[in-house]
């Protein structure tokens, strides 16, 4: 039962059916405080659905998700979970500062906090620009700033670095590491296998099922190859869900 003490997020046998498609099939995983977990898998493998379920935006058909000791999405835990969706989820007709100030008001935070997170994601130079005028990278960073506002203990980031240049990607990953070092629990989905090497733990999904959960070394060992991309392909094209080991 040690996991109920240490785990920040526990996903237990979760199944989510969307329409006729089983988006998540009997998935279980643990996220530990102070770590970055990489959520990898081809598009359509259920990564986003699982992330939304952890945030509490997605109805779960079966299983349980516990976040910081409470059911996912319950009012007590909502302010402690930061979520960055793939869509920017910003008001494009407001400035960067106006966006952050509105969300800060919802969290009952002082207005200085809005300026702080804007600085944290290096957007101070664009603080008075309308979001509709921002570049793709600037928009992502602003969306990340919203997720960081309430100093969340759990951060769920859905492809936060997609479409960003390598320099920006590196600076974001440095920030993720700083947040984890400060005790936060991060779940980051990605298509870029190179990013997996920056994670403390990896979760591989395919067709809604969790194929693998563990460290990079364990993944390489199990797949019998060194390179993460090769290991992923080996596992993902191997026997289907549930037939592991």
């Amino acid at each position: 039962m040690a996991e109920t003490v240490t785990g920040a997020v526990q996903v237990r046998a979760v199944t989510i059916v969307r329409g006729t498609v089983t988006a998540v099939a009997d998935a279980s995983l643990d996220l530990l405080p102070g770590t970055i977990t990489g959520l990898l898998g081809p598009s359509g493998s259920g990564k986003t659905t699982l992330m939304r379920a952890i945030v509490g935006s997605q109805y779960i058909d079966d299983g349980t998700i516990t976040v910081l000791g409470q059911p996912a999405g319950s009012p007590g835990v909502r302010p402690r979970v930061g979520y960055m969706a793939q869509a920017p989820a910003l008001y494009s007709d407001l400035t960067v500062t106006e966006n952050l100030q509105y969300f800060a008001r919802i969290y009952s935070l002082p207005m200085e906090r809005a300026a702080e997170v804007i600085a944290q994601v290096d957007m101070t130079y664009r603080a008075t620009a309308l979001v509709s005028r921002l570049s793709g990278g600037e928009t992502s960073r602003t969306s990340l700033a919203v997720a960081l506002l309430a100093r969340p203990s759990v951060l769920i980031l859905d492809e936060p670095t997609v479409g960003l240049d390598p320099v920006l990607r590196q600076s974001l990953w440095r920030m993720f590491r700083m947040l984890a070092d400060a005790g936060a629990t991060l779940l980051v989905s990605s298509h870029v296998m190179e990013e997996a090497s920056r994670c403390d733990a990896l979760v591989l999904m395919r067709e809604g099922a969790v194929l693998f959960e563990g460290t990079q070394e364990e993944l390489s060992e199990r797949a019998g190859v060194d390179d993460i991309e090769a290991a992923f392909i080996a596992l993902a094209s191997g026997p289907a869900a549930g037939a592991g080991s």
Binding site: V55, S57, R78, A85, A87, P88, L90, S92, F103
Partner: peptide, 13 residues
């Protein structure tokens, strides 16, 4: 459609 509603509803509002 922009996702702001989903974001808001995951917040304490």
């Amino acid at each position: 459609t922009s996702g702001t509603l989903e974001r808001l509803l995951a917040m304490p509002i």
